[in-house]
């Protein structure tokens, strides 16, 4: 079951996790000890902003400059799934 992440939670990438762009497959990937995640474009944008400073709500606001119709709940849901995969931790 996916846990719930609040909009004021502050996500950050865990140690040992690397976010990169796979030139061959032309996709954003997250490399971590247990596996590989292949992100779509918006997920990559969210992960890039998981800096341990911005909250989920602030990430949504930032992405609002680039994307139309950003849903903060989508971001919270993604972060919750990344926490489950032990790619991201949240404070708060």
């Amino acid at each position: 079951m996916t846990s719930v992440v609040a909009l004021d939670a502050v996500p950050h990438i865990r140690r040992g996790v690397k976010c990169t762009y796979d030139q061959i497959r032309e996709s954003h990937v997250v490399l971590f000890p247990e596996g590989v995640l292949v992100l779509n474009e918006t997920a990559a944008s969210v992960v890039a902003l998981c800096d341990g400073v911005r909250s989920v709500g602030e990430i949504a606001l930032s992405l609002g400059d680039v994307y139309a119709g950003v849903e903060p709940e989508d971001i919270a849901g993604l972060v919750a799934r990344l926490v489950e995969r032990r790619v991201v931790d949240v404070d708060g």
């Binding site: 995640l37 779509n40 994307y67 119709g69 971001i75 993604l78």
Partner: peptide, 18 residues
């Protein structure tokens, strides 16, 4: 000065393959 309207990309639900 005329600013072109900003074209924002359409939000797609963020997802990943595992």
């Amino acid at each position: 000065e005329q600013k072109l309207p900003e074209v924002k990309r359409e939000w797609v639900k963020p997802d990943f393959r595992d």
